[in-house]
């Protein structure tokens, strides 16, 4: 799951390349334009490194935190098979975090620093996980639709320019295909079930629709900053384009099940070929991303507890002669 890193659109583009060697910058950009990948030891602009670290790290944090609302339901998933499947899915997500942290590490930020920034609230993670999974149906909606959104994002980013991130995403996307089918199967089971089951899944969809619309982030400002990130293949698609792609693929599937999406304005505009919808509440998005959501405090407190509880085990295993070097690829 879950990549939707938030790149601050307010940074001045001019500052992005200030002080960079123009010859090296030109070679770097030519390499990307030829479709070649950038590898860890290559020369890269400072801003490229910085934006990638932030993006990949946030993506990794999202996998870790995303495991919490879903993990809640492992013991209460209906039936043995669903417990097994959900456990496998949550394990996958934690594995994805490790793959992503490894990719970010190749850019020079240690895993310790990334975890510290997560648990102190300095780094962000996908905003959707600041909302709780009230019922089993919420866990099913997450597995289907949040993973669907994440796949759209990850498939786009897998074509980016940074080799280690692309390799991690290729591996991640393979596993996500199971998550998506698993989530869809669960939602279909509820939606084609008893009236109580249908009610449950409808309520979960109603709760999750606003966070889902927030998932890809606010419309990108058309700025030279965004242009440079696109030229460097750090950002592969605009937030609005990804949201449109999601709506195009999943609204019909939701409607097929006779479920109601809580947005009276949602319809495909035949003239533009795009979806019209009510503009999501971006003040709410900002409020939650800055700590005001229902679960922000819980998510981080749980992570801190886990780090603290495992610390003595790691300390006991650490040998004094060990030395860290940056991973190769």
């Amino acid at each position: 799951m879950y990549g939707n890193a938030y790149i601050d659109p307010n940074e001045k583009a001019n500052a992005m390349i200030a002080g960079e060697d123009p010859i090296k910058l030109a070679e770097f950009e030519a390499r990307i334009a030829r479709g070649e990948k950038i590898e860890p030891k290559d020369w890269m602009p400072k801003e490229y490194r910085k934006q990638l670290i932030r993006m990949i790290e946030q993506h990794g944090h999202s996998e870790i935190i995303g495991a919490l609302p879903e993990g809640t339901w492992i013991t209460r998933a209906p039936g043995f098979k669903r417990k097994l499947a959900l456990m496998a899915k949550v394990q996958d997500e934690v594995g994805h975090a490790q793959l992503l942290y490894s990719a970010a590490e190749t850019l020079g930020k240690s895993r310790e620093d990334m975890i510290n920034d997560l648990i102190t609230g300095k780094s962000k993670y996908s905003n959707v996980f600041n909302y709780p999974a009230y019922t089993w149906a919420d866990a099913c909606i997450i597995a289907w639709l949040i993973d669907a959104g994440a796949i759209i994002n990850q498939v786009a980013n897998a074509k980016g320019s940074y080799g280690p991130y692309c390799r991690a995403l290729d591996r991640i996307c393979t596993e996500e295909s199971f998550h998506l089918k698993y989530g869809h199967d669960n939602v279909v089971t509820l939606a084609t079930g008893t009236p109580t089951q249908r009610k449950m899944v409808q309520e979960a969809l109603t709760r999750w629709w606003p966070p889902i619309m927030h998932f890809f982030g606010p419309s990108d400002k058309i700025s030279s900053h965004t242009e440079i990130l696109m030229r460097w293949k750090v950002k592969m698609a605009s937030n609005d384009d990804m949201r449109q792609q999601f709506l195009n693929m999943y609204v019909p599937k939701i409607w097929d099940l006779g479920l109601v999406i809580p947005d009276a304005n949602l319809k495909k505009n035949e003239e533009t070929g795009k979806w019209d919808y009510t503009e999501p509440d971006w003040d709410e998005f900002k409020r939650v991303i800055n700590g005001g959501g229902p679960c922000n405090a819980e998510r981080l407190a749980v992570r801190r507890m886990a780090e603290e509880k495992g610390r003595w085990v790691r300390a006991a295993l650490l040998r004094k002669d060990e030395k860290y070097v940056t991973p190769l690829a």
């Binding site: 490894s102 590490e105 240690s110 895993r111 310790e112 975890i115 510290n116 102190t120 780090e307 610390r311 790691r314 300390a315 295993l317 650490l318 060990e322 030395k323 860290y324 070097v325 991973p327």
Partner: peptide, 11 residues
């Protein structure tokens, strides 16, 4: 307390 260097071991 923050994680210290080598908390996550070498690779």
């Amino acid at each position: 307390a923050p994680l210290t260097e080598m908390d996550q071991f070498e690779t």
